[in-house]
Amino acid sequence: MTTFPNFLDTFTSTLLGTKPFEENPRHRALLNVFTEVQDLEQRLLTAMTASPQPGTGAAEQLEACTDLLLERLAAGHELSLLLSTPCLSAAEVAAADDLWRPCGLQKDEDCCQEPAEPVAPTAGLLDACSDVFAELGDPHAVASADLVDALRRLPGVAGNHWRYSDLTQARLAELLAPYGMRTRDITLPDGRRRKSYQREALLAAMGVCTSC
């Protein structure tokens, strides 16, 4: 698939005398995941209709198709999360909800009382994830399940009104999606192959230059 912007887009900007548009990371994430879904579907179709290669049996072909199917399901789920996430960041949505929600509409008797714990902005979730990576020795990747287990020990709110103690892998994926973070199938140092978050992606989401 053609990448954007390419030389033709640059030429158009030069011809019109306009400045290149600044790319929206959320839109880029949508494009990348959508492209990945299409690619996985094509690979899965090819694997399912191809004749077995010499030296491989039906079991190996079935295993390969199963792996591709699982990757396609994961990518499709991630695309659904991105498509359903408001254009505002999770932190902005939470802040807007807190600002405009009339107290009288809440049935909770404590709605007018101060929260028992300070509500941290969702951006603080990135710092919390960074702390987990640091505690583990800054590995190149951490399994989603391991990251959730560590975050669930923290007090306060992670985002979307979910407390850290209520996080699940799906909820964490939804909170991190606006920052362009998504899991990858990675073989970890202990030999496990798990859906994992990469440290480089986390640093990029936090605005840390990873090429310096």
Rank of each mutant, 00 (worst) to 15 (best):
A96D: 06
K107M: 14
D108G: 07
R194Y: 03
T210Y: 06
G180S: 04
L79D: 00
T12S: 11
P121E: 03
T10Q: 07
L45G: 13
M48L: 14
F7M: 01
L167W: 01
Q198F: 02
P52W: 09
A74V: 00
P118D: 13
T18R: 15
Q198C: 08
P86L: 02
P25S: 00
L40C: 02
W100A: 05
R182C: 04
K19G: 04
T49I: 11
G137Q: 06
A128Y: 04
P54W: 04
Y179C: 12
G17V: 00
N6S: 06
Q113E: 15
W162V: 08
C87W: 14
V132S: 10
R182I: 02
P115F: 03
Q113P: 07
A59Q: 13
R43L: 12
P86C: 01
Q38C: 02
D97N: 08
R28E: 03
L167F: 03
G124S: 10
D9C: 06
D166E: 14
D108I: 07
D146N: 08
H27T: 02
T66S: 09
V157A: 11
G76S: 09
V157C: 15
R184S: 09
V37M: 04
Q113L: 15
A64K: 14
E109A: 15
V142D: 03
D127C: 13
L68V: 00
C103M: 14
L31T: 08
G159R: 11
V208C: 12
R182E: 02
D149G: 04
G180R: 06
T10P: 00
T168K: 05
M181H: 02
T35P: 00
G137T: 05
F4I: 02
L31E: 11
L45I: 10
F21W: 04
A94Y: 05
G207N: 12
E135C: 15
A64T: 08
D131R: 13
T183N: 08
L62C: 10
C103K: 15
G55W: 11
T49N: 13
N32T: 03
Q61Y: 01
L202I: 02
L45V: 12
G124L: 10
T56E: 13
R26L: 04
A123Q: 15
L73V: 04
A204H: 13
A201K: 10
H77N: 05
R194F: 06
L30I: 00
T14Q: 13
A75D: 00
S196V: 04
C87I: 11
T168M: 07
T187W: 07
A128P: 01
L188K: 04
G207P: 10
D127G: 15
W162G: 02
P25N: 03
A95P: 02
E117M: 11
D185S: 15
Q113Y: 13
D131M: 06
A75I: 00
F133W: 01
M206W: 08
L172Q: 06
D39V: 05
G159C: 09
D9T: 03
S211P: 03
H77C: 01
Y179G: 06
G156F: 03
E200S: 14
L203R: 12
